[in-house]
Design a protein around this nucleic acid. Structure first.
Length: 966
DNA sequence: CTGGAGTATGGGACTTTGCGGGCA
DNA sequence: CTGCCCGCTTTGTCCCATACTCCA
């Protein structure tokens, strides 16, 4: 039924969604496979195309409407959109070059990465083709001050006037989602790059050589605990400081090398160095990053955009950029040291969105070999998303440019003020303290220095390391290590701290072995808050699945775990959910990588195989698997939210007041707690209700003596309609309510059996075949066209099969497909149908042949007639030649007869017909010169072929005509 | 500042069992 | 005359999710 509807209902949105639909379960949560990957590529391609077309579309419309006002708002909007493409382009370019670096790393991943590269290059081509000059016209001025001023006042006015804010359309949402996805992919690529750099033996040994000997000796490789890491982290923290400026030369490896040299680096570099050190000490370590991506929703940004519009300094992105550039050049020129200065300048000057900017940017990146890219990507998490959150998707266009200049010019100095490295002994600052810092910064930014980029996110933890401590937790545990902030094992602090810095932990990803794993659960306690901000799980899983395999392989090193240890582990993790322990155990032995109800799980088949091979008395627990258990445990033991709205779609808990019409609580308990006085029930108690009819379609019927679980009042309008139609007021009560039943009130559908070859039918004399389950026992559904004729002929009882409805003209019409008959007649009917269709085909063939013959006859007759007329009246020099040409012409044009003849199953006949023509042609030359010749077909010259029923008539001149007797 | 309640709105799901004319 | 085939034409309502406003 559902399938039918989907196919019949015209899809309102297309493109990506359609592409997605073509994918049967892309990644499939647990069954990610090669086809999933392939379609991912398709989807990505379609998406990029869509993004571009949309951007182009917007641009065009903007130009059309406001061709006379180059400086007004739509024009700006127009320009921004161009910029948005530029950013996409850059991001894709980043990804592209990133992937080039790691091109040989992994087979599977590279398949879709290669495709991504392709799409990236398509994008680039397209971008280069588009006319940039047009879009840049409004903001051409390098100084930007004069046109900008006018712009602002207009813009602001406009934004106020346009008070009724247009809600984000489906297309807007789609674009935001696409941007979100692309951004995610880029950040994933970035993380992999860093991870790869952390494996550089040169850097590792260099760092190791700096390590004091006592630390080297005192760090146990075995029996590692979180506390034993503290001296190491303290050493790192004290010896490496967060640097004020960002260098833009060299690869990540060289950046790390330089950080080693200067004992300074970005937060990212220091986190990376932590990983380097830990790996150098032969510990299992990962690089962890918050992927602080562009928002998945356009609306929030939009609304913020307008609400913040009251602040002049932040109302307009162009103003921001202009301001930033001006200030940057005036104030912070001094901070632009050697290499970064040049880069920044070129970006800043061109910020207004000209083509030259992109070219500069690209040339920079290519010439420096991906060197400036680290800076781009690095600033993405901390800076760009903030822009997005505050300004909406129109800001996305500018984010990379702005991030670049802001990072180099503004953020770095600001970093210094909030930098904990300046206060080596400081621990994590309290959230309040951070907020204050943030506030101060916002204040300062509103005074004119860049407000554009993510100022409030400064100080947020974005990068850290995880070390596998095998002596923790019985089974070992991944321990959070943040050398920048000198925190070890502070996973629970990350969320609050990030929240204080307005960063949400939507995606926390751990990188290792060029792979990646989503470990958000470890750091995020309030999952319900981030769930809606995350991309569709299927997509994310399918993206991560190859990376997960790599990650698991890299951190492999199985620990043997006795059976009972699972219980210990459960106890340790304070599992409150009944059944989880059991299911986990079962799963571990069934080697099913997917835990119940956990869509985040995607343990690759390979790993499953590994586990299979080592099944025995002991079950082998990989780190990966143990971590899965840990994360799943967290997922199932989420604390109760404190606000009611969080229960609306909470995956674990429910409040009765937030249930929908068709939901109820059954059983109504246990009560897990209270929220604002409302009892909290487990989500598992929420049951879907349906009407009897709906359940019928699923092959279920309501048990006798069951009262409706819920009754809904019908809408007044419908009741009125019914009453006016039926004029029947007796049933008042039952008409006024819709009776709903739950699954626990149902039993399998028991339809009356077919008896004596008679199909039980409904009141309309048909059978509603919503699914196979709805067939009366002892009957079959034969879906063949016109099969009812056969049944009728054989006098077998049948019922038309109604398979669904079609909606046209505002009305619904039943769709019939085939018939329902008793099973015992199936064979007979099929045989008869085969015979009948054969007969029918033969009949059709005969008809076609007959028609072909008649047409040939007509053709030849007309040829003869024409020839006769020509020879009698015509003054053409070469009449017969004309005939021949005409015949040819007719053939060339593909006259109905010939092609249809070809299509037929009768090539012989076709051949014959064509031969007739050619005969005429061949014979023609013999009389060509005899202009006045009249053909005379004497009876004695005539031959008759009995087989083909062809009469060949011959003239003494040699001309012959073959005529088939009809 | 946060959260609850109420309201507005976009968008998706659901709706649900002919009829008349031409032609063989 | 009968039975079959084809084309007609493209709704309207309700509900849910979400965002916004107001207020405590």
């Amino acid at each position: 039924m559902r399938g039918r509807k989907q196919s019949q209902r015209p899809k309102k949105s297309s493109g990506v969604e359609d592409a997605g639909e073509a994918v049967p379960d892309p990644g499939g949560g647990c069954s990610q496979s090669s086809d999933g990957r392939g379609t991912l590529v398709d989807v990505s391609r379609a998406a990029v195309g869509k993004l571009l077309s949309r951007a182009t579309g917007r641009r065009l419309s903007g130009t059309k409407k406001h061709a006379l006002q180059p400086c007004d708002l739509p024009k700006c909007k127009d320009g921004r959109d161009v910029n948005s493409i530029m950013d996409t382009k850059e991001m894709l370019e980043t990804e592209k070059s990133n992937e080039n670096v790691i091109a040989n790393s992994s087979g599977d991943v590279n398949v879709h990465e290669a495709q991504l590269q392709n799409s990236a290059s398509h994008v680039l081509e397209d971008l280069d083709d588009s006319d940039w000059e047009d879009g840049a016209a409004g903001t051409m001025d390098g100084t930007g001050s004069y046109p900008m001023t006018i712009e602002f006042s207009e813009t602001q006015h406009d934004s106020i006037r346009r008070k009724p804010i247009r809600r984000a359309s489906a297309a807007d949402k789609e674009i935001a989602e696409l941007v979100h996805k692309v951004h995610l992919l880029c950040l994933l690529g970035r993380g992999r790059l860093i991870d790869r750099a952390c494996n550089d033996p040169l850097i590792q040994s260099a760092l190791l050589s700096l390590l004091p000997i006592h630390l080297l000796k005192n760090t146990p490789a075995k029996q590692l605990t979180a506390s034993s890491l503290k001296p190491l982290v303290a050493w790192l923290h004290n010896n490496f400081h967060v640097r004020n400026q960002i260098r833009s030369e060299g690869s990540i490896n060289s950046a790390l090398a330089r950080a080693l040299e200067t004992h300074e680096g970005t937060a990212e570099e220091i986190a990376a160095l932590t990983v380097v050190l830990l790996r150098a000490l032969d510990l299992t370590a990962r690089f962890v990053s918050i992927l602080d991506v562009a928002s998945i929703k356009p609306e929030a940004e939009r609304s913020n955009y307008f609400s913040e519009g009251t602040s002049v300094s932040s109302s307009n992105i162009f103003k921001n950029s202009t301001l930033m550039v001006d200030k940057a050049e005036q104030v912070d020129r001094s901070s632009l040291t050697s290499t970064s200065g040049g880069n920044c300048e070129s970006n800043a000057i061109n910020l207004s969105g000209k083509k030259t900017f992109v070219l500069d940017e690209l040339s920079c990146t290519t010439s420096s070999g991906g060197n400036s890219k680290p800076d781009i990507s690095e600033t993405c998490p901390s800076k760009n998303s903030q822009v997005l959150k505050r300004k909406g998707d129109i800001e996305f266009e500018m984010q990379l440019q702005m991030a670049l200049s802001a990072t180099e010019v503004e953020t770095a100095p600001r970093n210094s003020s909030t930098n904990y490295s300046n206060v080596p002994s400081s621990k994590f600052p309290s959230p309040k303290k951070l907020k204050r810092i943030v506030d101060e910064e916002s204040a300062s930014s509103s005074r004119g220095i860049s407000t554009a980029v993510g100022s409030s996110k400064v100080g947020s933890p974005l990068y850290w390391a995880e070390v596998y401590c095998n002596a923790e937790n019985l089974t070992g545990k991944w321990v959070h290590v943040d050398a920048v902030n000198m925190v070890v094992d502070g996973e629970h602090k990350v969320e609050d701290l990030a929240a204080a810095c307005k960063t949400s932990l939507r995606y926390v990803v751990a990188f290792s072995g060029l792979g990646a794993k989503d470990v958000t659960r470890r750091y995020c306690m309030k999952w319900y808050k981030i769930e809606k901000k995350r991309i569709d799980t299927l997509w994310w899983d399918s993206v991560l699945s190859p990376l997960r395999t790599l990650e698991a392989r890299a951190t492999e090193g199985t620990g043997f775990l006795e059976n009972g240890c699972i219980d210990d582990l459960m106890e340790h993790n304070k599992v409150k959910m009944p059944g989880l322990s059991e299911s986990l155990k079962q799963n571990s032995f069934a080697n099913d990588g997917n835990l119940p109800g956990n869509s985040d799980h995607n343990v690759s088949e390979e790993l499953d195989t590994d586990r299979n091979s080592s099944l025995g008395k002991q079950f082998v627990a990989t780190k990966d698997y143990l971590e899965d258990i840990e994360l799943e445990t967290r997922a199932l033991t989420e604390p109760l939210p404190t606000n009611q709205q969080a229960y609306k779609n909470h995956r674990l808990y429910a409040l009765e007041k937030w249930l929908t019409k068709y939901q109820t609580l059954h059983p109504k308990g246990p009560v897990l707690g209270f929220c604002s006085g409302h009892p909290v029930y487990p989500r598992t108690c929420v049951q879907m209700l349906q009407t009897k009819q709906k359940w019928l379609r699923e092959g279920l019927q309501v048990k006798s003596n069951e009262l409706p679980a819920k009754e809904l009042k019908r809408s007044l309008k419908k009741i009125k309609v019914q009453e006016s139609e039926t004029d029947d007021f007796d049933q008042g009560d039952s008409q006024g309510v819709i009776q709903l039943y739950g699954k626990w009130q149902l039993e399998p559908l028991q339809l009356p059996r077919a008896i004596n070859g008679v199909v039980p039918k409904n009141e309309r004399g048909q059978v509603d075949v919503w699914s196979e389950k709805c067939l009366p026992p002892g009957t079959v559904h034969i879906r063949l066209p016109r099969v009812f004729n056969v049944a009728k002929k054989l006098e077998i009882d049948y019922a038309p099969a109604m398979v669904g409805f079609e909606f046209r003209n505002g009305r619904s019409y039943p769709i019939y497909d085939g018939i329902v008959v008793c099973s015992k007649f199936k064979r007979v009917i099929l045989e008869a149908y085969a015979e009948e269709s054969e007969r029918r085909e033969a009949e059709e063939r005969r008809q076609r042949e007959k028609q072909a013959i008649s047409r040939w006859y007509q053709l030849l007759s007309s040829i003869l007639t024409r020839q006769r007329l020509n020879s009698r009246y015509g003054d053409d020099e070469n009449p017969s030649q004309q005939v021949v040409t005409e015949i040819r012409g007719t053939n060339d044009k593909g006259n109905v007869d010939i092609p249809s003849c070809k299509d037929d199953t009768e090539p012989v006949e076709c051949q014959l017909q064509q031969n007739n023509v050619s005969n005429a042609n061949m014979d023609a030359p013999s009389f060509v010169n005899e202009e006045d010749h009249k053909h005379v077909f004497l009876l004695e010259d005539q031959t008759f072929d009995e087989k083909s029923l062809v009469v060949t008539k011959r003239c003494h001149c040699g001309f012959s005509v073959q005529v088939e007797e009809l």
